[in-house]
Design a protein around this nucleic acid. Structure first.
Lengths: 215, 215
DNA sequence: AGAGCATGTAATCAGTGATTACAAATGGGA
DNA sequence: TCCCATTTGTAATCACTGATTACATGCTCT
């Protein structure tokens, strides 16, 4: 899938430098995290001079933003896959599946997750793609909660905004704790990923059942 | 409180360079976040040559780790203050207060929060102070849950580890969403901090009440 | 074929973390 | 009191980074 690493090139022009740079940047991200990416190294791997990338990306941030857009697409796919594998009609099960899919993707692709959730490495707000895909997931969550409520599986006065906020914060927090290395020494005998799944299920079942929280 | 910014110095030796460097680094962190810190600039502000800091800190990471240790102490204080202001004997109220204190401190000191929760800028695992203070908070949470259970305010079979994990992930997630700028455009009319408080309260009351989650 | 534009190069800049050889000051022991 | 070892800071330097500029090349369209 990836282009040949050898930067052999016969013509003066590269032909597809933009994509080659993104590929190289992804490779660098996978090798050593976002901090491992340098424009020069990406240029070198594309077999091109250090200044060339700036014809295609205004800044390092722009290059990493392009990487983030690809990564975000993969995350969206992962979430969609997780949803499509749910064989229950229960919207709350689907809701949990989103969290599962998100979490599993983040753990399987920690460096990419770091890229898309950073706001210093990339220009999130400046990318319609990033904002759009993020918002799409959020809207899907609200849809599912709405369905759940219509099916009488959620308190009639449930506050969707707070519920979705809580769910997002929870899953995001779990993912970041993993990615940020907060589980580097993990004493409970249980493997981390299992603990995460259980914690997620605990969270979902507690937060969404009909019993009402006292204000 | 801070030393004079003017690096006027009469003697060859600085006298207190180590502390001055930490002060300068804190100042830089407050001005523009962790990425704004450079050893050279800290040295300049301390009125000293670019190489001098390396007599006191093996690396930039070591300097930022020292900053993190101070920041973590402040966080510990903030949490302790929040706890001492609780005038209820209910351990679950105290439990929520820890979350509140943590969250408020993180929001009030976003850049310091970034420093202590990073694992690339600082050497967390290598600092007894950081690990210790972190663990102390975690243990306090478990103590409170134990009390709650003894007072019959928690399910008899509540899984403390998963509950504490969930609570930490939730609060950490909220804090990071704020710090990472995930609320830069916030559509609901409600101010973010209020929404966070409500979400936290929702979380605590749902997760800790006697009703049992179905496995 | 030639004009114009997109693309890549070379040279250069300022800033970074880090290391080294050297110089200055401090303080304890004779 | 004096001297010398240790601590502490300096100066020079290295390799690397993101970024900009002036220039060279080659593709494409009329």
């Amino acid at each position: 899938m990836a282009k040949a690493k050898t930067p052999r090139r016969t013509s003066y022009h590269h032909g597809n430098l933009r994509d080659a740079l993104i590929d190289a940047a992804i490779q660098l991200v996978e090798e050593g995290g976002p901090d491992n990416v340098s424009v020069r190294e990406a240029a070198k791997r594309a077999g091109v001079s250090p200044g060339a990338p700036f014809r295609h990306f205004q800044s390092k941030t722009a290059l990493l933003t392009a990487v983030a857009e690809l990564a975000m697409s993969r995350l969206t796919e992962a979430v969609a896959d997780a949803l499509s594998e749910v064989d229950s009609a229960d919207p709350i099960v689907a809701f949990e599946a989103i969290g599962q899919g998100y979490l599993e993707w983040a753990i399987a692709n920690p460096t990419h997750f770091q890229v898309i959730s950073s706001r210093t490495l990339i220009d999130f707000d400046g990318s319609d793609s990033l904002r759009g895909q993020n918002e799409a997931i959020r809207r899907k969550m609200i849809d599912l909660l709405t369905q759940a409520q219509q099916q009488g599986k959620l308190a009639a006065n449930a506050d969707f905004d707070h519920l979705v906020l809580a769910a997002r914060a929870f899953v995001y927090g779990l993912a970041r704790m993993v990615v940020d290395g907060h589980f580097s020494q993990w004493h409970p005998s249980e493997p981390p990923s299992l603990a995460l799944r259980k914690a997620l299920h605990l969270f979902i079942s507690r937060m969404t059942n009909l019993s009402e929280a006292k204000s």
